[in-house]
């Protein structure tokens, strides 16, 4: 409560002016350091940003497309290419990075909207069979995304689009702790997310040894699915009701298994179950499906530098390939 000591008017004015000057000087220095190092604006992709996109779903027509899934659906597609290839359709990205199965989002779309357009759903065998993590985003949208949150996220988005230092991974704490402890700027954030939640991964920005470490860590955790008697039935039971409800009102759902790269796919599918079980589930669900990892043409040529995601320089080509393959199902 030291601040409660009596202070004079002149003191108060000087304090306010220097406080403002300090804020501006520090922010400008931070911004300058970041821009000089080639960093660019990227949005913090949180529940509120997801909710801003979710809020637009009721405005979609039967011609439009909703993308569901996890990080690969968010990072592998190129928004500009999509707009060029599908000029008459709106495409919204509701994929959630790091949150596995998109079933909770599908359920939400089915139960609480009348959307009857095209759903492109990115799932793997593992996420088809289990996972409910995306429910927290759905709950947050319905429970917390009030007018106040909307306004707050709009301001945040605008500021993050203007200033590099407010973007994901550019925090002042990270900057100064790294500068003080290592004498250099923090490693650059290699992903760039825009207000539509499309993300691009620029792997060339990562130090090669760090990228190798990321790749090694990711590959180290890869195991093929195990033999389980009821796994196909479990997966079908999980998805069937929501898909049938969606299709009964005229919606079309297409499942995609996005490319993970040859090395990882070999590990994932070393016993053949990742491929065969995915096919069995898709057959049982009777949905159009495309597994980019097993497709004989085109897709195996998309290598994933981090053993999971397509590089930003390849997303344009990948998007064109994918759209060409999926268009017959629209």
């Amino acid at each position: 409560m030291d601040a409660l000591r009596p202070i004079h008017r002149r003191y108060a004015i000087t304090f306010c002016l220097t406080c403002l000057a300090g804020l501006l000087a520090c922010t400008a220095t931070h911004e300058w350091l970041m821009r000089r190092a080639g960093r660019e604006q990227t949005l913090v992709d949180d529940e509120a940003l997801w909710a801003t996109i979710r809020m637009e779903v009721p405005q979609l027509s039967g011609n439009d497309i909703l993308l569901l899934g996890a990080s690969r659906m968010q990072t592998d597609l190129n928004e500009a290419a999509l707009q060029e290839l599908l000029p008459d359709r709106r495409v919204l990205n509701l994929a959630i990075s790091g949150k596995g199965s998109s079933l909770p989002v599908l359920q939400d779309i089915v139960d609480r909207t009348s959307f009857a357009g095209i759903l492109i759903i990115d799932e793997t065998v593992t996420t088809l069979e289990a996972g409910n993590d995306q429910q927290s985003f759905v709950d947050s949208f319905h429970r917390d995304f009030t007018f106040d949150r909307r306004v707050n996220r709009t301001i945040e988005t605008w500021l993050q689009e203007q200033l590099v230092c407010l973007g994901f991974g550019q925090s002042s704490i990270r900057l100064w702790l790294t500068l003080l402890s290592r004498g250099r700027l923090p490693d650059p954030v290699y992903t760039v997310t825009d207000a539509d939640r499309f993300t691009q991964s620029f792997f060339a920005r990562i130090r090669p040894e760090l990228l190798a470490e990321i790749r090694r860590d990711r590959l180290a955790g890869q195991v093929p699915p195990t033999e389980e008697e009821n796994s196909v039935a479990t997966a079908v039971a999980r998805w069937k009701a929501a898909l049938e409800a969606f299709r009964s009102r005229g919606g079309r759902a297409i499942f995609v298994c996005m490319p993970v790269g040859n090395e990882r796919w070999i590990l994932n599918n070393s016993n053949g179950l990742a491929e065969s079980r995915w096919n069995q589930i898709m057959d049982a669900l009777q949905v159009p499906a495309l597994n980019c990892n097993t497709s004989a043409e085109a897709f195996p040529s998309f290598e994933t530098p981090d053993a999971s995601h397509v590089d930003a320089n390849d997303t344009d080509r990948f998007t064109r390939e994918l759209v060409a393959r999926l268009t017959p199902f629209f």
Partner: peptide, 23 residues
């Protein structure tokens, strides 16, 4: 002095503004 206090609080304000952690 007022200017020193102002600069310190300005620095704190900058850290608050750019701390950018998750919600």
């Amino acid at each position: 002095p007022a200017w020193a206090a102002g600069l310190v609080y300005g620095g704190m304000l900058y850290l608050i503004f750019t701390a950018a952690s998750s919600n």
